[in-house]
Every structure is written in structure tokens, then in C-alpha cells.
Design a protein around this nucleic acid. Structure first.
Lengths: 231, 231
DNA sequence: TCAATTTGTGTAATTATTACGCAAATATAA
DNA sequence: TTATATTTGCGTAATAATTACACAAATTGA
């Protein structure tokens, strides 16, 4: 049995699309889903879907992430809402978008429910994407590039334990500029938001590096004192 | 003749709500509309309305502003999208919100089409407002307070010609802190984004002040050189 | 044990920010 | 017309933040 829903005025559909960003192999990557349905069948697109009844926007985003990638408890923020009437060839669909930062990668592979093929693409080598998703991705990158300077987003992209060099490289990749190592370390350590662990990395080559963790408690204390993160 | 619109799945309605901010008499003010229909009849609310067919979100915002206040060519930016299923007692209505900054005030009075009563309220003395509009207003104020520090929003709130004291007072009101006059002037003038006019104010009392105008051309040049406004 | 690689550290020079007080121009009241 | 109240416009010294820059120590692999 099929029920239809009837309204006095036309209503656009509402979808939620997610820009999932991960950092691996020294590059920022974006997760895309391979479309097998029209429109844009065969193209890659952001993981998204339609809003369900009784669902809030953020609930919808979380559900979609779970369905498409198995990811739970992601760090996410609402990005922007796109509503040009012609952005979807089928009909007017308004897309509320979120960006999602993740720090561990295999999420994608081990999800039983997933049907569509998904893959990570380096942000500098994105394929041709469906709909206005290229514009959405650009807005996401701009937002993250700006925001990583004044809010602790970077730690969401790294594993829990990281070296200062890894942190610096991440900033360099996102900001697209090189930073002085000594000044970077001085600044980050003086902020007093990192917890020094007494562990070091074991690597193939070079002096082992001390591992650090982001200390959210210290960070919140800092915020209360109206001192803000700023690179 | 009445046509109905039918869909396979339920669709929330989509509205656009605007937080209009103006600066007058040394205070930031917000424009509210007095509701005469249910729900929340008798309460004040943000000027908003439903999205029309074929309309983009920003077009909708512009249309509503025109209808409710007569204002044209406003400075506006998308703020956030609110979508909790219970935010409207009637049904699920998603609200895409914009903030609008205006620098000349009588807009409100001389609009023939307007039906509802509208009024400006100082942001510190807002009445009890309908729906989740108090939350929306809070988000708008937080956003403006943050953004005025690193983008030239302030000039949208002042008349075209203004004195440095007026500009300073505006910052003081929004940031809720006092600023040193000499340092403020030094900083703003050193940015080289103001055009000094050879006019002065004529006031009741005190030394006349030189008028300045925001120089958008200089500002854009600055942006291109990757130098950013920052208070 | 030598070479290659990566980490970890200090200081001096430069630039930006802060703190602070007084004279000049005007309107108003005496 | 003179005195008073008010507001503008301006400079400097002290402090804090940012920048530029090089070498020794710890490790791996040859």
C-alpha cells in the first residue's frame, strides 16, 4: 500500500549532503560515492540522501554517514544550504550540507550495509562530480582553511596521538604554505592545549619523535578565560 | 480553482527568516514583525515567509525583505539552517536564515505594501519572540560579533559618511568592550581602507569631526594582496 | 662506523600592541 | 565676550608577539 502526501503549495525536496574530509598519506582526501542511478549515473557525488520524516538535519546527516560508511560519532558542522532551483535536474531539491572530519580511515571498507562504491579522493585530484557538488566541496575547503586557524579542527583530522611534525605538516597542507618548525612548536606548546605523552614514534628513519595528544580539558579552560586558539 | 501537490514521501515546508540588524541611537536593533495569526498570535517574530516555487533561497530572502519592509539591495549573508522537527507547532518547517545589515533606517515606515506591524527592538531588550527565533537571533549576534573583527561588516551598519568616533562606538557596542581612541584610530587608518572626506560634522557640542567613507576599491586591493581586515 | 634522515632547541631583530594626557575646536551658558 | 563643557585629534615609550635563522642528537640502513 502506497500513501501519498499532498500539500496546497509545491514543496522542494530536502536532502543532506556531507563533505567528509580525512587526512592520509600527507594529503587531504574527500569521500565520494559512485552513482549508479540517474541523474548523473556513473559520476561521483557526495554521500547524501533525503531527509526522513521526523528527522532533524543533523540526525539525517549522522544517519547517512552511518549508512554509507559505517562511521559513528563523527565530528561535524553544518556548512551551508544550497537552494538554486536548477541545481538538480529532476526538481527543486534543497541541500543542507555538513562537513565531517575524521581521523581514522578504514571506516569505509568494513561496512556491511553499504551498497554503493565509495572511495577517497585527494582534494587536488577530484573527479568530475555530480550536481553542484564541486561548488559545495569548494565552500567546505574554504571554510576549513579559514577555520583551522582559529579553532582546533586540526586535531579532528589526526589520530589521537600525533607528533608535532605531523601536526605541522597538516597545517601546511591545508593552508598551502610552509611554516617554520621552531616557531610552530613554540607557538603550539605555548598554547598549553597539548598533552605530552611519554611515548615516541618508531619509524624507519630519523630521530624518534615525542607523541602528543590534544587536551580538550585544557582547551575548554582556555576558552573560559576568553583566550582563543589562533595559529 | 485549487491545485494540490502530491509527493510519495512527506516533505517539510521551507521558510526563510531574516535577522535584520540596524544601528541607531548607539544601540544595535533588530526588526521584528507582530504576528496576528496563529501560532504565536500576538507575539513578535522575525520577518520570514515560505519559499515560493522556482525561487532560490536568497531570492526568497530578498523578496520577504521587500514585502515586509520595502528594503532593496540589502547586505545579507546566509546564517544557518534550523530544522528540528518540533520547531514549529504546526508541522515540520525548515528555516533557512539570513542576517541582514542595514545602515539607514526609515525603510520600515514608508512601505505601502506592508500589512503587519513592524518595529525595531534594541538587542538587549527583545520581547518574548515566537518559535525558536530567540535561538536564531542569538546565533546571528554571535556570528556578527565574531565576524566584525575580521571582515568589514561594520561599514554596512553605518551611513556612508561617518566619523571615526562613530565607528569606534559601533565596535564597542557590538564587542561589548571599550577601545582606546588613539589606538583605534591608528589601527583603522593604517589599514588604508578609509577615504578621508573633506567634510566635517556639525554638531551641538564639541570639536567637529572629520568624515570618512569605506573605500571598497582599496579594500579589494588589500584582499588581493592577501592582507586581511582584522581589528 | 658512516651516511642519511628527522627531531629538538635559543636568541637576536623586527614588528605589533598597549598604555597614557593634553591642546584645539566648537556650542552653550553666564 | 568670556568661561565652561564637550568632543576631536594626535605621539611616544614600554611591552609583547612574531619572525628569521643553524646545529647537535637520535635513529635506521648501507
Amino acid at each position: 500500500m502506497k500513501i501519498d502526501y499532498t500539500y496546497k503549495y509545491p514543496r522542494p525536496a530536502i536532502s543532506v549532503d556531507n563533505v567528509m574530509l580525512g587526512y592520509a598519506d600527507g594529503a587531504l582526501k574527500i569521500l565520494l560515492v559512485h552513482r549508479t542511478n540517474e541523474p548523473y549515473s556513473g559520476k561521483w557525488a557526495l554521500p547524501g540522501g533525503f531527509l526522513h520524516e521526523g528527522e532533524s538535519l543533523s540526525e539525517c546527516s549522522v544517519r547517512i554517514l552511518k549508512e554509507k560508511t559505517g562511521l559513528e560519532n563523527p565530528f561535524m558542522e553544518q556548512l551551508y544550504t544550497f537552494g538554486a532551483p536548477d541545481r538538480d535536474p529532476r526538481e527543486h531539491i534543497i541541500s543542507v550540507t555538513y562537513f565531517v572530519l575524521i581521523n581514522h580511515f578504514p571506516v569505509v571498507e568494513n561496512n556491511a550495509e553499504k551498497v554503493d562504491q565509495v572511495a577517497w579522493f585527494p582534494w587536488s585530484e577530484l573527479p568530475d562530480v555530480a550536481f553542484d557538488h564541486a561548488a559545495i566541496i569548494r565552500v567546505a575547503i574554504d571554510r576549513i582553511r579559514a577555520k583551522i586557524r582559529y579553532s582546533p579542527l586540526a586535531f579532528e583530522l589526526l589520530p589521537e596521538k600525533f607528533t608535532l611534525s605531523q601536526l605541522q605538516t597538516l597545517f601546511e597542507v591545508i593552508l598551502h604554505q610552509t611554516l617554520d618548525r621552531r616557531n610552530f612548536r613554540k607557538k603550539l606548546l605555548s598554547m598549553n592545549i597539548l598533552q605530552e605523552l611519554n611515548e615516541t614514534t618508531t619509524k624507519k628513519v630519523g630521530k624518534p619523535a615525542v607523541l602528543y595528544a590534544f587536551d580538550k580539558k585544557k582547551y575548554d579552560t582556555m576558552l573560559q578565560q576568553q583566550i582563543y586558539f589562533e595559529l
